[in-house]
Design a protein around this nucleic acid. Sequence first.
DNA 1: TCAATTAACATACGTTTCGTATGTTAACGA
DNA 2: TCGTTAACATACGAAACGTATGTTAATTGA
Lengths: 197, 197
Amino acid sequence: MTRRSRAQMIEETRAKLLATARQAFASQGYGQTSMDDFTAAAGLTRGALYHHFGSKEGLLIAVIEQIEAEVGDRLQTASAAEPTPWLGFRCRCRTYLELALEPEIRRIILQDARAIFGDVPQAAQSVGIAALQAALEELIAAGTVQPVHAGAVARMIYGIVTEASFWIAEPDGDPQARLAQALDGLDRLLAGLLHQA
Amino acid sequence: MTRRSRAQMIEETRAKLLATARQAFASQGYGQTSMDDFTAAAGLTRGALYHHFGSKEGLLIAVIEQIEAEVGDRLQTASAAEPTPWLGFRCRCRTYLELALEPEIRRIILQDARAIFGDVPQAAQSVGIAALQAALEELIAAGTVQPVHAGAVARMIYGIVTEASFWIAEPDGDPQARLAQALDGLDRLLAGLLHQA
DNA sequence: TCAATTAACATACGTTTCGTATGTTAACGA
DNA sequence: TCGTTAACATACGAAACGTATGTTAATTGA
């Protein structure tokens, strides 16, 4: 066990680079992070970085993909436990909002990534939005939700969540209270999608 | 008339700098814009820039303030013509979306500014959001809209508009069709805010 | 009216940072 | 065993930003 294969060591340096970059991006932001500095913090040099990731943007893409994968898993886990499809959908939106509150996700995905790649991170094609869209399409087919364009509305919900997370995290105001108020507002907006009884 | 006062000339260079920067930021993005290049394009040097705006960020803030002021005017003009407060509110949201489709606004306000100043441009305190919140508060007081937190929901609508604009402008897909689909989705979501009949 | 100060810029410089080009070492294949 | 390639480190060049330092012209005050 104390003996590591060559392939394992390579993977270790890649993972170490990724983890250190993720930490640095989250705490200082992508633009403010010097590749010299944080590679040194990882005990390596920029040479290793450019070998594994090609460019600073390539590194950011790798970090985004890692985070997106985690987000996808957590959303899936949370919403799968709900009893009805609609409640599952609602839970997915709420959980999305809670995830967006984590500083790492807000800073890297919602804040910096947008400026680098204009649109939603095309890199990982935003797992969260895709899943939201799929859930919406099912609900529309089942007649629970009015016939809207699922892709459009999924994106809009993503926007709701994004902005709400920034609002909640604003320096003034109580985050807990704001989270509750945001979840309430989210509920009202989502209710508009339902078919009238 | 051919005689310009000193103060006028100073204002002219300031305006010229601002206009050139706005153009450059919109077409190449804030990060990709070299201060040497675009000041030269304006027939000046970085010296003038740092004298008037202090820093590159200061220049961006000035550009944002200019755009925000225009956005505020156009929103006000559009919504004031509507017959009822609710329709005025709805119109404001729709117009907001249409404005967000303009490349200049999308690139500078929605895309780049967020990465530089984490939150919504605190610089000009987003006139659009503030007006949206005020309109919401009136509608709640009048009993037209359910009692939600106006600040939270105003921000969420801002998020809807932002994401929708990016979605509409995606390279594939027909922008005209997508705009219609987005406006439809927006209507459904907003309908959730209304009191049930 | 004239000297001193300040505003409005231009120019020059130093620092930081990114990407690339060039080693270097160790493993792997023929 | 020898050539090749992967996995890095090191060195170099090219922006780009901010600042420090001119320079000129207007303005102020005595």
